[in-house]
Design a protein around this nucleic acid. Structure first.
Length: 506
RNA sequence: GGCGCUAUGGUGCAACGGUUAGCACGCGGCCCUUUCAAGGCCGAAAUGCGGGUUCGAUUCCCGCUAGCGCUACCA
């Protein structure tokens, strides 16, 4: 057989914030691709910007990835721990003429507004002149004398030169993209970007910019496919140029479309929850969340929606990635969650419910042991009506704990009838006297009473539901009674009596 | 402003020159029903606009428009 080398991919988040849903999807695509192809998935932390990094955020990012079920084979590799390799690459580029020293003051270009350059451009435009492109720095053409002078002046001002890439003035730069196809751009449109930043006053650290660090690491890690957000599409020619300058073969790029908010603008805090962490907190199931995210910008080629892990791994392909931005549709995410809540084998759901009950401090160890069957059956009984994990400790609380509240709206709705106090007293007595506690027996007691009293069974059913679980909504009543047990049901009915009397008389 | 990318119902995807333009979410209705879900059935809803190419365009080409991205010594 041919020894086609296995792909190596990486996910490279920057610890400047939490793990964003867009980043999560990029991670998932990388992971699915690696697993599908039998390749290697590497995690790399791009933390070369000391001012923006927050090292404490790394743990949160790793935790979110683990929650998603995205596991990595190598890393995490921190760029900040291998800063010595980047200057070496920049120097090599300098040595072979692919780059040059730039003595301009960092302030001239630095900062989001890069005021100085823009001011000049605006002034020129106002004068009706063709805007002079700022892309070719004068330092590119310095002769030895000029260089010396610039160096002296820079030293005087307290900084050392930066290293810029010498982009060809003419011609084009091309690269392959597995999603967008062959790309080719005019070199004249690419500015002489910085590879190595000029050391700040008083510092000697020679820090790389994103493009350099990224390419150097991708080469060293032998990355074969760079799968990342489409916001990098426009930057890719620069990286292609670096590969060439370094004499390395570029990888296959695969840019995936962005995830937008409902207003079609980039997902941001304005759109509510954008971090994976907030969805964990809300109680979404990881597999549901991942299934939803995977279908944003990708399809298996048919109408498949519900794709569990194994199917995703089997069917994922870069060929299925679309080129159009997708909107994060929360209702669909919720639909996926309810689907998983219902279709997951109960054994797979149980750990999540356990975690939720522990969080709510109503977990009992017997449910992991002697009463495991009861626990699983009760999950099965309650789950059709749950939407998020916390529903198990709130809405379904009465199944797991005696410590629950009567829902106000439920009391208003079902404890109105003035006949109820007397009826419920008789019903309670009937249940207390019941020797066989099962669905049909419970059903018979209630219906017999309703018939004897000439009322509709629904009146008792609805009132009883509120009395035993505190909610207007619950699984079928008699199943609920069986699950909770005679002793507790009778106790709960007795406890509710005064409350029902108070409610109906008011 | 410049450069680039994209364009199928409200949303996510399918149809990759020939289909009554399909599926799912959401929405409306009906069924089921002790509540509310789930489930089943039915329905409304789309090829941005204008030119080409072709016997035939959702599909290929061009223009327009719109949206998004990039345009930092951030990633």
């Amino acid at each position: 057989m041919t020894t086609a080398s296995k792909p190596r991919v990486r996910f490279a988040p920057s610890p400047t914030g939490y793990l964003h849903v867009g980043g999560a999807r990029t991670a998932i695509f990388n992971w699915l691709f690696a697993r599908h192809e039998g390749g290697t998935f590497i995690l790399r932390i791009e933390d070369t910007d000391v001012e923006r990094n927050k090292p404490e955020l790394v743990d949160g990012i790793l935790e979110s990835l683990r929650w998603l079920g995205v596991d990595w084979d190598e890393g995490p590799v921190f760029q900040s721990q291998r800063l010595e390799v980047y200057p070496a690459a920049a120097d090599a580029l300098l040595a072979n003429g692919s780059a040059y020293l730039c003595y301009c003051a960092p302030e001239k270009y630095a900062g989001g507004d890069h005021a100085e350059v823009e001011e000049v451009e605006e002034a020129e435009e106002a004068e009706g002149k063709k805007p002079l492109k700022k892309q070719r720095c004068g330092c590119r053409h310095l002769d030895e004398a000029g260089r010396k002078a610039a160096e002296a002046q820079a030293a005087e001002q307290g900084f050392q030169p930066a290293i810029r890439f010498r982009v060809p003035e003419t011609g084009t730069t091309a690269f392959d993209d597995a999603v967008f196809g062959k790309r080719e751009v005019q070199n004249a449109e690419i500015e002489d970007f910085v590879l190595l930043r000029s050391p700040k006053a008083g510092q000697t650290a020679r820090l790389p910019t994103y493009h350099l660090a990224c390419v150097v690491d991708d080469i060293e890690m032998r990355i074969t496919h760079v799968i990342r957000g489409a916001d990098h599409l426009s930057n890719t020619p620069k990286q292609a140029l670096i590969y060439r300058g370094l004499g390395a073969a570029p990888p296959v790029f695969a840019h995936v479309p962005l995830i937008l908010g409902p207003d079609k603008t980039r997902m941001s805090k304005r759109h509510g929850a954008t971090s994976v962490g907030s969805y964990i907190e809300e109680g979404f199931l990881p597999e549901a969340f991942r299934n939803f995210l995977t279908l944003l910008g990708w399809s298996a080629g048919d109408d498949a929606q519900f794709l569990r892990t194994a199917e995703l791994l089997e069917r994922f392909s870069l060929a299925g990635v679309s080129r159009t931005n997708a909107i994060f549709d929360r209702p669909k995410l919720e639909w996926f969650n309810t689907q998983y809540l219902q279709k997951l084998p109960v054994e797979d759901l149980a750990p999540h419910v356990e975690a939720e009950l522990k969080r709510a401090k109503i977990w009992r160890e017997v449910w992991a042991g002697a009463e495991r069957d009861w626990f699983l059956r009760t999950i099965d009984l309650t789950r059709p009506r749950t939407r998020l994990l916390p529903d198990f400790s709130t809405w379904a609380r009465g199944f797991f704990s005696d410590d629950f509240f009567y829902d106000g709206a439920a009391m208003e709705k079902f404890w109105k009838d003035a006949k109820l106090p007397a009826l419920m007293e008789k019903l309670t007595a009937g249940y207390a006297a019941l020797t066989e506690w099962n669905h049909d027996a419970c059903d018979k007691v209630l219906r017999d009473l309703a018939a004897a009293e000439g009322i509709k069974a629904g009146l008792l059913i609805n009132a009883t539901r509120v009395a035993i679980v505190g909610q207007a909504v619950a699984p079928p009543l008699f199943d609920t009674m069986v699950a909770i047990g005679k002793e507790r049901i009778v106790a709960r009915l007795r406890r509710a009596l005064p409350a029902i009397a108070a409610k109906t008389s008011s």
